[in-house]
Simulated scan of single mutants.
Amino acid sequence: MIESYPKFTVHFHQLSSFSIPSAQPFTLTVVWEGVDFDFLINIKPKSSHLLIIGSGAGTMANEKRVSTPYFQRHSWIHDFEDSTIFYNDPTLYFDPKLSLGWGQGSKERFYLKEIASILEVLIKK
């Protein structure tokens, strides 16, 4: 399902000029200082509400890793009347055995803060 959506990649400094499509769901990778921050976005022009849905534990299914980027509950995307942005935790890219990263990132970078900064730009759009 996710594979069928259009994919876009932009660098963080280009994000403010990125034009958000509203015709159908799409994935967006924001590259920020070498880290891929992945989002699944579905804009519903008639809605004034936006739901932000993060990933929790769940990248492991029957001891087999679910592929990343992982957008938990993405199958609900058409069930919401509101616009939605799902985000993947890039902490999961560090180790295939990780099933949950809480957005911690690395010792040098707190990914959840950077996800919030990206979301601030997207929300303004």
Rank of each mutant, 00 (worst) to 15 (best):
Q72D: 10
S83E: 00
L15N: 02
Q14D: 10
E3V: 11
E120L: 06
R65D: 03
S17F: 13
L50T: 05
S67L: 10
G105K: 06
T9G: 08
E114V: 10
F110N: 14
S106T: 12
H74C: 05
K125G: 00
F18M: 07
F71Q: 01
F110Y: 15
I77G: 02
Q72T: 11
E108W: 06
P96D: 13
S55A: 10
L100T: 10
E108Y: 12
Y93S: 15
I53A: 04
I115C: 01
R73W: 12
D89H: 03
E108M: 11
E3G: 13
K124Q: 14
Y5N: 02
M60G: 08
I85Y: 00
S67K: 07
F94N: 13
R109Q: 09
G103Y: 02
F110I: 13
Q104A: 11
N88R: 07
E120F: 07
H49A: 15
A57W: 09
P45I: 02
H13W: 13
T68D: 11
S47I: 03
E81V: 04
I85H: 00
K46F: 11
D89L: 03
S83R: 00
K97W: 08
F12Y: 06
E114N: 08
T59S: 02
E3D: 14
N88E: 09
Y87A: 03
E114I: 12
L122K: 00
W102M: 09
E33Q: 15
S47H: 03
H78Q: 08
P45Q: 08
S75C: 05
P25N: 06
G54H: 02
M1S: 14
K124H: 13
Y111F: 06
D38K: 14
H74T: 09
H49M: 12
D36C: 13
E120V: 11
A23E: 15
G34K: 04
R65F: 09
L40T: 00
T29C: 11
T29Q: 10
F80D: 00
S48A: 14
L98F: 09
E33L: 11
H78Y: 08
S4G: 09
K125M: 01
Q24W: 06
F110L: 10
I123K: 09
S19L: 12
V35M: 06
P21N: 01
K64N: 09
Q14H: 08
D36P: 12
K124A: 12
H49G: 12
